[in-house]
Structures are given as C-alpha cells and as structure tokens.
C-alpha cells in the first residue's frame, strides 16, 4: 500500500511516529479493523451511493466502449474498434493536443490569479474584506453556461464591449476575438480562467486565514521581510490546497463543456475543438455512443495522469518545508 506516493502519507507517517513513540506500533490488520471500525460506518453511506451513481455507471460506460452502440440500441461487441477509430481520427488527435494546451493554460492561470486574489484580500481589514471578496470571487458563482453567454456577448464583434472599446481607443478595426488567428484560443483560455479562478481563490483564502498569526509575528520580530514571511510562513501552508486545486481544476477543465460550447462550439470550423465538445458531437450529432464514451475515457486518462503527476512531484517538494 505504501508504494503509492499520494498526498497524505506524510501525516499518516507522523501519526505512526507518534504511535511508535508510545509503543503503539506493530498492529495486525485485524487490530486496525477493530480499532477503526467506525471508519467503515462513516464510509458505508458514501460507498453505497457511489456504487449506484458512479461505479456501476462507470463500469457500464467502459463496457460500452467495446461495443458499437448507437442511439437507442445496445450494440454488439466490437473489441478495440472504437479505440483504433479514435487514435487514427484526425480531429481527435487535434482535439487531444488542444485540450492539453487549454487545460494547462487555464489551470495555471486559475491557480495564479486565485492565489493573487487570496493574498490581496488577506491584507484587507475585516468588514471591508467581505464585500470585496464577494465582488472579486463572483465570476465563479455564475453557471458555466451563463459564463459562456456572458463572454460571447462581451467579445461579440458586432455588439460586444471589447471590440467597441478597441475601436474607440485604438481607432483601428478590432480583431475578431472568437474567429481570427490565435484569438479564439486566447479567448477560450481567458474566459475559462475568468470563470474559475474563484475556486482557487476561495480555497487559498481559507488556507491563509487558518495560518496562526503568531507565526507571522514571530517571523516579523526576527526581521523577516514581507517576501521572506510569504516564503517561510505562508507558502508551506499552501501546499495541500495547491494539490487539491491542481488535481480538481485539471480534471474539471478537461471535462468543461458548457462554457466553451456556448462560446465557440469548437469553431470556427473545428479550429477550437476540445475533447469534451467532440464527445458531445459524437454522441448527439453522429449518434455514436460507443465512440463517444471512448473519447470520454481519453479525457479520464488525461485527468488521471495529471493528478498522479502533481501528487508525486509536489509530494517531494513538500519534504523541503516540513
């Protein structure tokens, strides 16, 4: 079990260290079961619901990737045909690459902007802080679907605000933010970052508030500069939130459908096709569920790989601070 280098083993090891100290080590599985039976009680409700709504549906979904299921049918077993179709499909190859760029760009920006927001807000006195944070974090609370419409309207070449401002300020025609050159890619990444940096911001803010003030005071008394205090006191407390945010946001940015679908729908042409939109199109335009689910699994593979990567890398990093 311990070859998994996931986050969390550290505190578990420290608990072990404590036990060792008080002569509590060397337990059998049975002992652990007896001692922690309450764990099962706590987990069972969740486990039952997960089985019904996740494990069973996921197993069915995975099964469908080996069939040629189309709309309304059950389909026949076709082995790896959907997988060979997928990896040899031009549009899939493109969408896969662009999804990686999109996810990397948005996740990084969301993290950076969210952290900056949390740090700035932590400096503001209580009272003022509440309403400022309500404003600054607000994009996260709009439905992703609405986020797509909001940005589509904001960037609209004919009636939008940004192109109009551009013309008035620079006195030259505005680029077509959702159509020409690299603009649609930039727009999608910026809009997605706008919508979701609040997630990182709120988690970071909760973590920063949890840091005992004494640690700052001690550091300040020791003559540490602002930057140093950030590095020595704040940063170590942000490692756990960072892992949480990175893993979750990566997975969600991979799966994000509503906002990019409203914004460009994969267009113009198929220039901004993301895996999520491609999945939707394969299922509900081409009515091919077997293939759509196969693309879905490719999305899962991306999220999983990223999560394992983060946990491994940051885990090692963490040793530096603890």
């Amino acid at each position: 079990m311990y070859e998994w280098n996931w986050y969390g083993t550290v505190s578990q090891e420290s608990a072990q260290a404590i036990r060792r100290k008080y002569g509590l080590e060397e337990k059998t599985i049975l002992d652990r079961m007896k001692e922690h039976w309450i764990g099962y009680l706590f987990i069972i409700p969740t486990f039952v619901m997960f089985t019904l709504l996740f494990y069973f549906p996921i197993a069915r979904g995975v099964f469908l990737t080996f069939t040629n299921t189309r709309l309304g049918g059950s389909g026949e077993f076709v082995g790896l045909e959907n997988y060979t179709w997928m990896v040899t499909n031009d549009l899939f190859q493109f969408a896969f690459g662009w999804t990686l760029v999109f996810v990397f760009g948005t996740t990084f920006l969301q993290l950076a902007i969210g952290l900056l927001a949390a740090l700035l807000l932590s400096e503001v006195v209580r009272g003022r802080r509440e309403w400022l944070s309500a404003i600054i974090m607000s994009p996260y609370f709009s439905a992703p679907l609405a986020g797509g419409v909001i940005w589509m309207w904001f960037l609209n070449s004919d009636f939008g605000m940004l192109p109009r401002l551009w013309v008035d300020l620079f006195n030259s025609p505005a680029p077509s933010f959702l159509a020409s050159g690299v603009w649609p890619y930039v727009s999608l990444i910026v809009a997605q970052s706008w919508h979701d940096y609040g997630y990182a911001g709120i988690i970071y803010a909760a973590a920063i508030v949890g840091i005992p003030r004494e640690q700052y005071e001690a550091a300040a008394l020791a003559g540490a500069s602002r930057l140093r205090r950030f590095r020595d006191v704040t940063l170590p407390h942000l490692v756990t939130p960072t892992i949480i945010i990175l893993a979750l946001r990566t997975a969600w940015n991979v799966a994000e459908f509503a906002q990019p679908f409203e914004l460009t729908g994969g267009g113009p042409g198929t220039k901004t096709m993301l895996l999520s939109i491609f999945t939707y199109q394969t299922a509900y335009v081409n009515l091919n569920f077997g293939r759509a689910y196969t693309i879905g699994l490719a999305m899962v593979a991306v999220s999983m790989t990223a999560a394992i990567f983060y946990v491994t890398v940051i885990q090692e990093e963490e040793e530096l601070y603890v």
Binding site: P268, G269, T270, Q281, V285, N286, N288
Partner: peptide, 21 residues
C-alpha cells in the same frame, strides 16, 4: 447514417474550409 453524412461529413468539412482549415 444520414445525420452523420449531413452534419459532419458534408457540413463540418465545408465549415472547416470556410475557416481556412
């Protein structure tokens, strides 16, 4: 496969051409 031919094989291909792909 009427739908796939209409929307994807014909329309999406032409749409890609309009987009300069």
């Amino acid at each position: 496969p009427t739908d796939q031919i209409r929307w994807t094989d014909i329309n999406e291909t032409i749409s890609q051409a309009i987009a300069g792909q």
